[in-house]
Structure formats: structure tokens, C-alpha cells
Design a binder for these strands. Structure first.
Lengths: 255, 255
DNA sequence: TAGATTGTTAATCGATTAACAATC
DNA sequence: TAGATTGTTAATCGATTAACAATC
């Protein structure tokens, strides 16, 4: 007479903790909802919203259920209301300061991105090591910021009270930059450099890497070509060829 | 006398199917290994490699085990050999052609990225709709490519035999670009535009979105400030404020 | 042989999915 | 009341982890 597994049920529904996978989807829901609100949509069903977000309605409803019961059975969700609830959950109702380290092509592209400021994120500091760039002034939204040298990174973070660091330097400098950010008190980093950052557990790093995306796609493309278990002659495995061993090219960005 | 669960074992170790989570990590292993190979490292243990890749050794060994048995018990892995095996698995031993659509700040930054070509990926086509940009020639590695208009996107893909499309246009154009890429036979897309693309199931889309990364970080930052279940007064929920309803700003990139 | 390290197993954990009772 | 749609449950699936037998 076996006891049901649920006998030792662990998670109380009230308990904190929105699943990571859900958190990663909330920004998409928010953007789609905000667009719909602008378009004047008042109410939407989970079925419609899910389609617009590229997920299943079951997944969407489950995700939203972690935030609370914000829908109306038989009707759907109030677009403006749900948009606000997600914004609040994500912390978009607070302002966030971002320091961008590395002003090569990618860094400048990011800084000039209008969408950057759209959701409460403001670039409040710029850092680069290149002598020709340090000291120059860069247009950021309606303000101008002068580019500071790496030695002043800690000061920049402190003065601007930035919470988030974005690293767009060449790979060789990224760890040093991360160390400085961390010692300045930053515990949220977006890393565009093609290296694995070594940071304390208390620091959250999000990695963005075009090379990784391309390689994942290449993997699937290759599978498409060589359908199933097309066994490459086992003898091939003997060779020790050095493909792909050009190593880190050092160049700034990877995405 | 219960039969072991493994009685109905499903996956033969030979069977196809490397888990998606593993595939997404292989590019990191490959880059780290290639760097080590360049540095002259001959052999490495799973413990060391895992540390360098920012994963646990158990996870690393499990991941590698899907590729085959390429290590030596008591010794470790031959760096050059393992680098090659991963490269082969990822399809990096083949050349891949990439068409970049959208040559704003982000698109140009990506094209000028030296690391782009490093792993077998070559930019073979450039497309943009801006009259001032169409027809201009852009330096891509050691060659020059002229920027073609969107109407010619299909031709560009066909002529260059590109397998992968990278979309760096403003959001409003992204779906149209995706449609053209798909009808031209592309089934691998990296999407930097802040929209959810609607494509057939046979097409694989990888989304890169700086805004999403920032918002996920903001969520955790907020949690750090308001530790646990700090219950915001339930009455707050009544309001229908329109925060975040500026909607899609349309501007080109999001990462 | 003794020490080191892989490859694999089995348990656990977290995420997805389908179905449906609750309820507007 | 009948129809629509949410919020939740329970089953399934996939990924992670720890431990260790195999083996160099």
C-alpha cells in the first residue's frame, strides 16, 4: 500500500520563488503586452497572448499564475493591468543605472540603442581604455557622458550609483573589468566578451554570445543534412587534427 | 519482485539526440579548449576544464559522454583531440555562410567582428533598406561586399548559398525579413530584433535580446532589495497604471 | 599495485504539458 | 443558464547532481 508521492509535498504555493524559466519569459510578455496596450487593446485571452509571444497558452497561464490571479475567468486579462503587474514584478517601475565598459563598435551600438532607456534602464557611465577615446563625450539619450579610463571604473560606479555593468571589451580585459565592477559593489553583469567570467556566487552574470548562437544553429543544420545516426567511419576518430585551434582571437565582442 | 525500471530502457547510448542543454554548452567547451590548445596544454582533467568553463565536472563529463568516450581514465582528455571532436559535432569543420540583414550600428558592429569568421562562419551577404546604404561597399574580413536592397534578399541567399540569417533590423521589418529568408530556404536565424518571429516549425530561431537580459537582472536586483515575501499592500493591485506602455520603440536593435 | 580520473548509474530536481474544475 | 476562459492539478519529460564502479 504505497503512499502517494505527494505525501511529502514541498512547495507551498504562497512561497517565494518564481521559476527562472518563467522570469526569463516575463520580459517578452511585457513587451508584447505593452505594444498591445499602445495599440489600444483592452482585454486579451491567454490563447491570443500566447500566440503573440510564441509560447503555448498552458505555459503562459502557468507563468502568470506565479504572479497572482490577474485574469478573469471567461473573459481574459486586462492588458494595461497585466502589463503593470509584470513591470512591477520585474522591477521595471524602479530606475536602473547601467555602466557600459568597452566602447568599440558593439559598445557604441548598444549605447546608441534607443530601446535601452525604454524600460527604466539608463546608461549612467562609460569606460574605455583606449587613449583616443578616453575623455571624449558620447551622446546618451538627451545627455552627454564623457568616457572614463578603467582606473576610474570604481569611481564611476560609485558616483553614478549604477547597479548593472555591461562588458563589451575584448576578451582579455573582461575578467579585470568584472573584478573591478564586483569590488565596486555591482552584482549584475551582462557579458558580451567571449570569456567565462569568474565572479562570486552573489554576482549574477548573463552571457550574450553570437558565436554560441551560430554554433548551436550549425549543429542543427548539420543534423538536418546527415539525418539520423549516420555513423561517420569510426576510424576517423583516430586523427588528432587541430581544427578550431586558432584560439581566442581577442577581438572585442562576440555578439 | 519488482522489475527494474531499466527494463524498458529507451535510449540506447548509440542513439541520436544530444540534449539541447548540452548542445548549448559545447561552444563554450570548444572555445576554452581551443584557447588551451593554443597555449600548448596537452592534457586536461574534467575537473580543470570544468572550472575553466564555469560548470561542474559532473556536468562536463556527462555532456562529453554524449559525444563518445574521448577521455582516458586516470589521465584526462587530450586537448587537441577533444577540441576536434567537439568541432566536428558542432559542424564547425564545415564552412557556413551568413547573411546579415540590417546594417545599423549593431549590424555593422557584428559584421566587423573578427571573431565572426573564426569558427567557420563567413558573412556572404549584406542587406539593408536605407537608400543611403544600399549599394555601398562594406569591408568584411579581407573582402568587400556591396549592400543589397531587401527586394533582392532571396537572390542574395541563393547566390551566396547562405545557410544562416542574422536579423538586425528595426522590429517592424523583422517579420518581413524572416519571411523572405524562410522562402529563400534559410532555416537557421539569429534574431536581434525585439519581436517574436512567426516561422514554420522547421526553422530554428535563436533570440538575442539585451533588454531581456537587463530585465532578468533587474528582477533579481529587486529581490535582493526586498528580501523574501515582502508583501506589497494587496490594495496596490487595484490600480491600472500604464507603466511600460510606451510600446515597441521600433528602433533597430535590442542587443 | 596504488592513485587518479573517467564514464555511467540512479536519484533528484525543475520545467513542460494536458486536462479540467472553478468561475466569470 | 450556456459559453468562455482562467487557475490549478497531476503526469510527463528533460536536466542536474552525487556517487562510484570501471579502468588507465
Amino acid at each position: 500500500m504505497p503512499l502517494p508521492d505527494s505525501f511529502t509535498d514541498s512547495f507551498a504555493s504562497s512561497g517565494r520563488g518564481i521559476p527562472e524559466a518563467t522570469v526569463a519569459r516575463l520580459p517578452v510578455y511585457h513587451r508584447v503586452l505593452a505594444t498591445m496596450a499602445d495599440a489600444g487593446t483592452v482585454t486579451i485571452s491567454s490563447e491570443e497572448l500566447a500566440a503573440a509571444c510564441g509560447v503555448t497558452s498552458a505555459k503562459l497561464r502557468k507563468d502568470l499564475s506565479y504572479l497572482g490571479s490577474y485574469g478573469t475567468r471567461g473573459v481574459g486579462y486586462d492588458v494595461a493591468f497585466l502589463t503593470y503587474q509584470i513591470a512591477r514584478e520585474l522591477g521595471l517601475t524602479n530606475p536602473w543605472g547601467v555602466v557600459v565598459v568597452g566602447l568599440g563598435n558593439l559598445g557604441r551600438a548598444l549605447v546608441s540603442y534607443r530601446g535601452f532607456a525604454t524600460r527604466g534602464f539608463t546608461v549612467v557611465g562609460l569606460v574605455d581604455s583606449h587613449p583616443d577615446i578616453v575623455g571624449t563625450r558620447v551622446q546618451v539619450g538627451d545627455r552627454q557622458l564623457s568616457v572614463r579610463p578603467p582606473e576610474e571604473l570604481t569611481d564611476v560606479v560609485t558616483e553614478s550609483d549604477a547597479q548593472i555593468g555591461v562588458i563589451t571589451t575584448p576578451g582579455d580585459f573582461a575578467q579585470d573589468v568584472a573584478d573591478r565592477l564586483v569590488s565596486a559593489g555591482v552584482h549584475s553583469i551582462v557579458n558580451f566578451a567571449p570569456v567565462v567570467l569568474n565572479v562570486p556566487d552573489s554576482v549574477e552574470v548573463r552571457k550574450v554570445d553570437l558565436a554560441v548562437e551560430l554554433q548551436v544553429l550549425a549543429f542543427h543544420e548539420q543534423r538536418r543534412r546527415q539525418p539520423s545516426g549516420s555513423v561517420v567511419t569510426p576510424l576517423d576518430a583516430g586523427r588528432q587534427v587541430g581544427v578550431g585551434s586558432q584560439g581566442s582571437d581577442g577581438k572585442a565582442m562576440n555578439a
